[in-house]
Amino acid sequence: MSFPQRLRDTFLASEINFLAENELVDVLPKTSMDSLPLIGTNLPKLRINQKVSIPIWLAIILKKQNKINLIPPNWLSINYLKQKYEEELKNKDKFSEMPWFWLEFSKMFLIHFKDDLIDPSYSIRSIIQDLREIRLIKIRSGFKELNESNLTFNNLSLMEINEIRPFAIKVMDQLRKLNHSIESSYQSQNNDHDNDNDNENDNENGYQNDYGYEYDDDYNIDIDMNK
């Protein structure tokens, strides 16, 4: 078996984590160290208290050896996250903008760089959890928008996309197959719809068509409606 089934439809959480670890973070070295050539980058020469950007996986190793301190990113603070949470509450059908790997980042920072964070880690943890839950609820309510053609998923992070991927793709593929098989009968009835479409183009929510699933005029439903 060259590639197991469970890996084919989507990424494993650990693989997303791997991708997140490639991202750069700012750190302050506590000691100096010579530069080191690597395969995917070169570790720059470390000088005491001179800020450098290095990949997270490297920062984790250096932190364990007590060589560096992390400079926490702006978004990892109670104030910022609270504000995002408010935003999520206010805009029912829109996701607020978060880093592409915010879930993995916050987890890694909370585990490996606890003492470098400005706010207490337990309160960051709880607000992250709140954010996560409110976004999950929105994602689930967005499932009814699934169609056979296309969808936008703006401001969702890779981990969040990854979680819904197997389900969303399966549903969309099934709808496509269903649609394909009814296409011939659908076409004859569709002539009337076509004329109506011009007047209904601003109808964002789509309407129930004869076949029982949501169908959008321009085949382009924005979950976040952020046009």
Partner: peptide, 15 residues
Amino acid sequence: DDKVELEKDFIYAIR
């Protein structure tokens, strides 16, 4: 024969 415009930096699920 439906058309969509793909916008920069947007994320889509598409064929």
